[in-house]
Structure formats: structure tokens, C-alpha cells
Design a binder for these strands. Structure first.
Lengths: 153, 153
DNA sequence: CTAGTTGCAAAGAGTTTGCATGGCG
DNA sequence: CGCCATGCAAACTCTTTGCAACTAG
């Protein structure tokens, strides 16, 4: 493929380093932008999007969308480690996104694949529900969670 | 408080009927809007969003986001079929929605609740991945699935 | 009559694109 | 020097909100 892939620029470096530094969390374009701005290493939003796109194509970064109005999340994927086997929990009340790294989940994924022939994509799949904090602080009576008009953001 | 749930209006009826008529496919707000406009039963976009939101809260409709720039997808959930009891798998390639009735999943939900304090909402949770048919017919070489997300739409 | 509902348009949020400038090679 | 990369702002798309008119109960 033709050479390209690109020049080695300061911005590309900055973004990639940010991604590798945050490989354990999902980051948003806004988050990157703000952080870099705070570091005095301001990078234009368009540039961030363009690099992230390239990285996704190269398989170095995964992109997933939790909610249409929230914006996409990105995460660095370590080439050596292959696929990350962790899932995400999203609280419908506080909107928090929680990491779930748990052998049970991996087992489930294996089971669904071998028994049902369906290969679950862990990075795309998000479990919706109510997190511990919200179910403790939220309602005294927990008779029906769905009624709680969520302020989805 | 509230009440509601509401008045019985022509628009609500129109939208709900559209949803039940398309229970086997995922629809977008735009799709609904266009279709209704073509039928002479034009309904404002805001109204569609508002009703869909309510229907989601009531558990009659499921919402999921495939891609930020594509818009959210909605699908009617048949109350009689007890879809509240099980989970769904959504194939990212063919778009099919598969019902997963499996004790393993419930076990996982239980585990996540007892160990991680997170209560998963089966109604809203959708597992994304690739279904059996697509992974068999889809790619000639299956050395790397990750690359195959071209026509994601 | 009262309160929820509708629709339009404006406001927001996230993402993409055009274009002139700047930097890598 | 050629060509890709960068930034800014404008353009777009999807979604939400404000508000006045409307309608179900």
C-alpha cells in the first residue's frame, strides 16, 4: 500500500502517545482535545478525528458508540494482546461508563460462540443498567427502575 | 406524578403502529419521518423523538446506537413474547436481531449484580457481534475479523 | 377548562469538509 | 520542492428544547 500511512508529525505523535497512555480507558475526541489543550499541545479537532480514523483503519484503535448524543469513544488496542476481552457497563442514570474485566464475561462470550455461533464483539457491546451508587442513592423504593426518568445526560 | 403516559393522540397511534408493523427490523427516526410523510400522515421530528423516548421508558421499544453519525435505531419489543426475560444479539453485518434465551446469560447478570453491584437491564442491552451465517458466508479468509467492518453503513 | 401534546424553528453536540498555510522527506 | 498534514471555520447530521397553538379527557 502505498507508502503513505503518513508523515511523522508532532501531532500524530502526540495523539498516539495519548492513546497508549490511556489504553485502559475509553477516551473521546473532546477529552483528548481538552487534555492536550491543557498541556499546551493544542491540536485541532479535525486533526484528531483524522488521525483517529487512520488509527482505526490500521487496527491500532477501536471505535465504538455508546450513545448517539454523547460522541464516539476510542481506545487503543495493543497489537500484541490481540483483542481485549472486557466489556462496558453503562449506567442509565448517571451515565457513567464502567469497565468490566471479568472471567465470567469471557466465559459467556465463549459459550455464545460455541453454542450459538454468534461471535460477540466485546468492544462494541455495552450492558445498560443501573450502577451500585445510583441504586443505593437513587431510590428508596426500588420497585420499578424503569420509571425513573433518566437524565440520560 | 406524573402521570401520564398519556393522552391518546393520532400521532402516538401512528408511530406505535409503524413500530409494530416493523417489529422485525430496526428503524430510524428519519425512516419513520419519511415514511409517514409519504403516507400523508406527517409527524414532526420532535414528536417522533418524544414518543420514541416514552416507548423506550415503557419498555415497548428498544433503542440502540450503531454509529454516532448514523443515528439511533429503534425496534418494537413484543410484550407478550416476554422479551424482557432474555437478551438480544445483533449482527453488525446483516443487522439481524437474534433472541438469546440462555441460562448462562442470566447467570452472568446475577454475577454482575452480586459481585459488581451493577444491575443489568436486559431490555436495553444488546450484544453486538457477528452471527453464524455472516461469519460463514461473509469472509473467505477469517484470519482477522476486525478488518471487516467496511460496509457498516 | 386543564393539562398533556404537537410542530416549527432555533439551539446544541459531534463529526466532516474545504481551503490556505505549514512542515516532513 | 512536492505532497501530506494541520487548523480554522463553515457545513452537516442527529437530537433536544422553547414556545405558542392545539386537543384529549
Amino acid at each position: 500500500m502505498g507508502g503513505s500511512g503518513g508523515y511523522k508529525t508532532k501531532q500524530r505523535d502526540t495523539i498516539l502517545r495519548y492513546m497508549t497512555d490511556h489504553k485502559d480507558s475509553h477516551v473521546t475526541v473532546n477529552g483528548i482535545s481538552d487534555y492536550l489543550a491543557g498541556q499546551g499541545a493544542r491540536v485541532g479537532t479535525a486533526t484528531i478525528y483524522r488521525h483517529l480514523d487512520k488509527l482505526v483503519e490500521q487496527g491500532l484503535v477501536r471505535k465504538y458508540t455508546v450513545d448517539a448524543s454523547t460522541g464516539a469513544c476510542f481506545q487503543y488496542v495493543e497489537p500484541e494482546r490481540g483483542c481485549h476481552e472486557h466489556f462496558h457497563l453503562k449506567c442509565e442514570k448517571c451515565g457513567r461508563l464502567i469497565h468490566l474485566e471479568c472471567s465470567h464475561v469471557r466465559e459467556l462470550a465463549d459459550h455464545v460462540y460455541s453454542e450459538h455461533g454468534f461471535r460477540i464483539d466485546p468492544l462494541r457491546t455495552v450492558f445498560y443498567g443501573i450502577c451500585r451508587e445510583c441504586s443505593e442513592n437513587g431510590l428508596p423504593s426500588d420497585n420499578d427502575t424503569r420509571e425513573e426518568n433518566t437524565e440520560n445526560e
